[in-house]
Nucleic acid binder design. Structure first.
Lengths: 125, 125
DNA sequence: CATCTATGTTGACACATGTCGATATAGGTG
DNA sequence: CACCTATATCGACATGTGTCAACATAGATG
């Protein structure tokens, strides 16, 4: 089952502009503020362990995963918890406690926002 | 003591192998190697100054810019040079000397590769 | 050759970051 | 309540990173 569509990433009709952070990187030079905001997201994914955790959550069935499902990334449990916190602080993940376990899921708007950043501008001029 | 100038013919690792990096983040959990590779790119854009420099190059007319065109980002000239070097090492930029000036341009495959990572559909709207 | 501008490199430093062990907290179960 | 599991926090440490001043290098030009 590798075809389960996990997340509605981009609405084709552009229904909601949730995170109007920045224009595409190629549109015009970023201002200092835009760069601060966008760099925070890139930075959060700029660590291999965090990227594995994020990918594990994003690819998990149902779009969410409990820590126990994804903590096999070669570092200690406190380190896993630390990285999940970082991803949460960066706005990339949300968490919810259900009983003994804590479930993390991807914040969908952020992925779309980063996609827009990297999207090639529709050939202005 | 004049140093023997190292030829740029031998690629100093990291300046290639960017395109066939990884599947979309949401497809399956990243392996350690995939995460290493992809995190390197994200990390390079995870600094506000580097992101401004990258955006300045990417949005400059002709797809390239000399350092003098983009070095107004609020840090000293050595720092600008340092960040451009980092972006180059990450495979995001290439450089070419033309006379007195050095021109940087975006490695085209990289934006597409990172876009694939984020599972961005090719917005046909 | 002397000198100017443009860019890169070096060395040093303060600070951020990733990591772990120890410990704390939350919730389940007997 | 006592005990167990799952997750978070704390404290400490080594390493990485961004920054600058000083200097080096490359090319143009007089």
């Amino acid at each position: 089952m590798s075809n389960t569509k996990v997340l509605p990433l981009l609405e084709p009709e552009g229904t909601e502009a949730v995170a109007p952070c920045c224009p595409p990187l190629t549109e015009r030079p970023f201002t200092a503020e835009e760069a601060e905001t966008a760099a925070r997201m890139f930075k959060a994914l700029g660590d291999p362990v965090r990227l594995r955790l994020f990918s594990a959550v994003a690819s998990h069935e149902g779009g969410e995963a409990c820590v126990c499902d994804i903590s096999d990334v070669g570092v200690s449990q406190p380190t896993v918890s630390h990285h999940l916190k970082k991803l949460k602080e960066a706005g990339l993940l949300t968490s919810e406690r259900r009983g003994t376990w804590v479930y993390y899921r991807v914040e969908p708007s952020v992925l779309a926002a980063m996609g827009r950043l990297l999207a090639v501008a529709p050939t202005a001029a």
